[in-house]
């Protein structure tokens, strides 16, 4: 049996110490195959962001192991890990007036020496990432003047320029309107199909998760409530247990995936 690309075993994490200690994750198991798209669902405060931060190496787990390609994350240097795993946050605000190209070239940071400037190959990688997210025509534009959807696609391009193995996205569409939500989803689908990029995405958007993800992991109060193939996990029973909401789950013929319609909140 081959080991999964990303393997999370018995993971636990808590913020604070002593009396203020607040457990966020416990007994979390997770397997992600190379080239798959996995969705993380769960109410606010269920530990989705914390789990992504641990996989990104930004936080260290209190217990348990995370392995990437069979190697424990703890044995990888910051830079090594950054060349494998990249993060796309919910929103990115550039304090200064960087161009789109400059934003994407920042993704090359872990690949360059401390005083090394970007060379022709870095430019090629950045341009390919821009092309793959449909933002190449924007490369000379100021990042700050882009729409929310354009910004998010540029940040995805920066993540691709950084590491095309594993992409972690934390509620990437939460601040976007319907059209941009759809654009981001299409970009992610395309990257997965053409580049084989492995994607883990946390979201509150059930329909986006149903359309995009082959597998889902449901997190509740820091524990895995259910995990498996989307069509097995996305059930009214699980949604009731996860959100205390009665929902209809149906297959949508034109969309070609499951859709979720909430009907009533349970008292």
């Amino acid at each position: 049996m081959s080991t999964p690309f990303l393997e999370v075993r018995d993971l636990a994490f808590a913020y604070g110490r002593g009396a203020a200690r607040r457990g966020v994750l416990s007994d979390v198991f997770l397997d992600v195959e190379r080239g798959s798209v996995v969705g993380l669902l769960g109410p606010n405060g269920s530990g989705k962001t914390t789990l992504l931060r641990i996989v990104a190496g930004v936080l260290e787990p209190a217990a348990g192991t995370v392995r990437l390609d069979g190697r424990p994350l703890a044995t990888l240097s910051r830079r090594q890990l950054a060349t494998r795993v990249a993060v796309v946050p919910q929103e990115t605000r550039a304090t200064f007036d960087f161009s789109v190209l400059e934003m994407v070239l920042m993704g090359r940071y872990p690949h360059l020496g401390p005083f090394e400037l970007e060379g022709a190959d870095d430019m090629e990688i950045a341009r390919r990432a821009l092309d793959d997210t449909g933002t190449l025509p924007l490369e000379q534009r100021s990042f700050a003047t882009l729409s929310g959807g354009e910004k998010q696609r540029v940040v995805i391009a920066a993540a691709l320029a950084q590491a095309s193995d594993l992409l972690l996205l934390d509620e990437p569409t939460a601040a976007l309107d319907l059209r941009y939500q759809f654009e981001i989803m299409s970009v992610l689908q395309r990257l997965n199909a053409t580049r084989g990029t492995t994607i883990i995405v946390s979201t509150h958007d059930m329909n986006l998760a149903a359309a995009l993800c082959q597998r889902l992991v449901l997190l509740k109060q820091g524990q895995v409530l259910a995990a498996g193939r989307t069509e097995d996990v996305l059930t009214p029973e699980n949604l009731r247990a996860l959100y205390d909401v009665d929902a209809d789950v149906r297959f949508h013929d034109r969309a070609g995936h499951l859709t979720v319609v909430p009907i009533a909140a349970r008292p």
Binding site: R53, A56, G57, V58, S77, R78, R79, L81, A82, T83, V85, A86, V87, P89, T92, R93, A94, T95, F96, F98, E102, M103, M106, G107, Y109, P110, L112, P114, Q162
Partner: peptide
Amino acid sequence: LLPRVLDLMSVGSESAASRGV
């Protein structure tokens, strides 16, 4: 030691950390 790191930090410390800073 700082010039490039400041670029990354100015975009966000969390994102800088995930890029190896």
